[in-house]
Amino acid sequence: MDALTELNVLGLILSAVLLAMACVKADRVRAWRAGINPSAEELSDASFIAARVALVALAGVGIYLCVQGFRVSDDTTWDDTELTTAVQGATDALDGSSGFGEIYAGDNDTGWIDEYATKIEQEVVEHGGGDAPQYGVTATPAAPNTASEVHYTVTGADSAFCMQVTRTRSKDGDYEPPGIAGGEGTVTVPSYDFAVTTHEGGC
């Protein structure tokens, strides 16, 4: 339970206490005051009515603020259901996708791994839905990894997922940008295809 949720729960408890105080009978309060200070001036019925109205009003404001606080808390933290749906959506979107590598980098280049982690995080947030937070997802490469296969531990709530990403050279061939020539001919940009699968639990 995060700090904001704990604060909201405490607010509801305090509001319940205020409502309970408003329900205490006037005779019981008078008897209690008389026992403590017999010479104290007796409270009028109007005073009790005003006190009850004030206590109920304060409790109502407290409950309203707590409900709003729970909504804010829901918008800033992931729950397991939201994360599960978002990770599955991200997996479906990334599986079968393609992308370009660095022009002069070989197939054994691992520079793409950290960049792809950011891509995973963005995709998960995008598939989180309207009530899900817009941040708070992390995709961490889980060693050992290679230039062609990487495992990412995706977290954002109490649960975690292991996303396996396999990168292979595209069957459609590399991309040849127009108007760019190398020392020995045309410069090509390596193109890669990505196969993505996910299972529950960390890598």
Rank of each mutant, 00 (worst) to 15 (best):
Y152A: 06
A51H: 02
L43W: 04
L7N: 07
P190D: 10
E6I: 00
R167Q: 11
W112Q: 04
G185V: 02
T5R: 03
L14K: 07
L4Q: 02
E184R: 07
T155F: 02
V72A: 11
A147H: 03
G202D: 10
A31W: 02
C203S: 08
T188P: 13
G96W: 02
Y175H: 10
H151R: 12
I113E: 12
V56M: 10
V187S: 07
L12Q: 04
S97A: 15
E102H: 13
H151E: 15
W78S: 00
V137G: 05
A3G: 11
A117G: 15
F48N: 05
V67E: 03
G128M: 02
S44M: 08
V9Y: 01
N37S: 12
G156C: 04
A54R: 07
A54E: 10
Y192K: 05
D79P: 00
F194S: 11
T91N: 13
E6W: 00
T84E: 15
V150E: 04
N8S: 06
R167L: 11
T146H: 06
G62T: 01
K119Q: 13
A57P: 01
E123Y: 03
H127P: 08
A181F: 08
E149V: 11
A117H: 01
G136S: 07
S170V: 06
R28Q: 14
I36F: 12
V137H: 02
V61Q: 09
T76S: 10
E115C: 11
M21A: 14
C203I: 03
G99W: 01
A34N: 15
D79L: 00
E123M: 11
A105C: 13
G173D: 09
G106Y: 01
S170K: 06
V53W: 00
G202H: 03
T188I: 14
G182F: 03
Q134V: 14
P190W: 03
D2T: 04
R169W: 05
N37D: 15
T76E: 09
S97R: 10
H199R: 11
L4V: 04
S15G: 12
A34Y: 08
A105I: 07
G179P: 10
I113T: 14
E102K: 12
V154A: 11
D172C: 11
E176Y: 03
T138E: 13
G35Y: 04
E176C: 13
L18W: 03
G202E: 10
H127C: 12
F70E: 00
M1F: 03
K171I: 12
C23H: 10
T118S: 15
F48E: 06
G183C: 14
G202A: 14
A50C: 00
G179N: 09
I63H: 01
I49W: 02
Y192W: 01
V17F: 08
L19N: 06
A26K: 01
S170G: 12
A93C: 09
A86D: 05
G69A: 04
S15W: 01
S191T: 14
A86N: 02
L65S: 05
G185E: 09
R30C: 13
R30K: 13
D79N: 09
A34V: 12
G183S: 14
E184T: 12
L94K: 04
S73E: 05
I36P: 11
P190L: 10
C162T: 02
L83E: 06
L58R: 00
P190I: 08
E6N: 07
R167D: 12
G60E: 03
A160P: 05
P177H: 05
V150G: 06
T76L: 07
